[in-house]
Amino acid sequence: MPTPKVKFNETAAKGEILEIKTMIDHDMESGQRKDKDGKLIPRKIVNKFICTLNGKELFHAEMHGAVSANPATNFFITATESGTMEFKWFDDDGSVYAISRQLTVN
C-alpha cells in the first residue's frame, strides 16, 4: 500500500507563502516497459493528485507515464485561513490514497 508523505509549515502567519512538499511511494509502471518475454507490462500509475483546504481546491495535477516512480509534487500556497488540508492520489486501478493535515494560520 503506497504511503503518502506531506511536508510544510503547519503553523503560518497570515499572508505567508508556504511550500507544500508531497511524495508517494509508487512504481508508476509507465506502460512502455517490456517483461522478460518481450510483452508490454500494462500501465499502472497514479494519474491524478489533488490538494484541498476546507474542501476548496488549491492545486491538482494530471500525471502520465513519464512521471518518475515515487512521484513528488511541490507547489506553493498563500496562508489565508486555518483548516484541514486534504491530499489525495488516484491510482489507475481505482485505489485512492489520502492523507490530511491541519493548517493553523495566525
Partner: peptide, 18 residues
C-alpha cells in the same frame, strides 16, 4: 504532467520525470 493552479502562493512547481 499538467498542473492546475489557483490564485494562491506563487507560480512555481517541482516534479520528477522520465
Amino acid at each position: 504532467v499538467s498542473y492546475f493552479l489557483q490564485p494562491t502562493g506563487k507560480a512555481e512547481v517541482y516534479g520528477r520525470m522520465r
